[in-house]
């Protein structure tokens, strides 16, 4: 492991240890925060007896739906905007300020429109992820070195083959970044939507546990989400490193 990695691990262990000590030593009241070891033990219990399996499956399938929609729609929209410069210039200011609009505020509206089911949740996740993908797609297509496109036409490649064999691989790092952001944003959107107003899913379960003063379940679920996010990030990071290493950058 690298030096930074070792220090990071030590740092995290130290923080968790300090929290554990503070909780055990009575510095922090159990009504407020419970010791990390109790969180972990309770999470393990919940995972084994299957109490939260349905919620996990539901949340993850919502995230998956939202990510698939965000990445595919985002890619198509990005490619279309890139090929229509006039439309793109008109849309540009909206894309750039998109994330300033507080979307959660629209969520209740979506419930009124779609009803209280998975659709408004997936929609919020999608709305959060899609623009990151659009922007990354446009960036990737913008940054294809012109000499590669010239090479393609010198070799007599048609538009379809140019797109598949030159444009797509060349823009791949940006598309990857877009996908990464879309996953993170969709996840945030889905959990938040479940938290605000829903009757199932991880976000809902946290809110429910909070409202019924069930600190152990609440913290166990939070720990689960933190571990899940860290795991997803680590996998994406390693994948990205592998791609970057091959490209020598």
């Amino acid at each position: 492991m690298s030096r930074a990695g070792t220090i990071r691990l030590l740092f995290v262990v130290l923080c968790v240890g300090a929290l554990e000590a503070a909780c055990r030593g009575g510095l922090i009241s159990p009504q407020f925060v419970i010791p990390p070891s109790v969180m972990a033990a309770h999470l393990w219990q919940l995972l084994i007896d299957g109490t939260i399996t349905a919620d996990i499956v539901e949340t993850l399938s919502n995230v998956l739906m939202a990510v698939i929609l965000a990445v595919s729609v985002g890619f198509v929209c990005g490619a279309v905007l890139h090929s229509l410069p006039r439309l793109r210039r008109a849309v540009d200011p909206f894309l750039a300020t998109y994330y300033a609009v507080p979307f959660f505020a629209f969520y209740p509206l979506l419930i009124v429109i779609f009803g209280l089911n998975a659709l408004p949740i997936v929609t919020i996740g999608f709305l959060f992820g899609v623009v990151a993908m659009i922007i990354s797609t446009i960036n990737g297509l913008d940054r294809i070195p012109p000499v590669l496109l010239k090479t393609a036409s010198v070799l007599g490649m048609g538009p379809v083959r140019t797109a598949l064999m030159i444009k797509l691989p060349s823009a791949a790092p940006h598309l990857f970044t877009g996908t990464k952001l879309a996953i993170a944003y969709s996840f945030i959107g889905v959990i938040a939507a479940e938290f605000i107003m829903s009757s199932s899913g991880l976000g809902y379960s946290i809110a429910y546990a909070f409202n019924s003063f069930d600190n152990r379940t609440m913290y166990a679920l939070m720990l689960f989400i933190i571990l899940l996010v860290t795991l997803i990030n680590a996998v994406l990071y390693m994948w990205e490193q592998a791609i970057m290493q091959r490209r020598g950058s």
């Binding site: 930074a4 938290f195 809110a207 996010v229």
Partner: peptide, 27 residues
């Protein structure tokens, strides 16, 4: 070095749905 130590932690925190921390904030 500090930057290298902190970066992955920050990225994880960035993609964490912070709304789940709302109960802690409220407490």
């Amino acid at each position: 070095l500090s930057g290298e130590v902190a970066e992955p932690v920050l990225v994880s925190l960035y993609s964490l749905p912070k709304i789940t921390l709302y109960p802690v904030i409220l407490l």
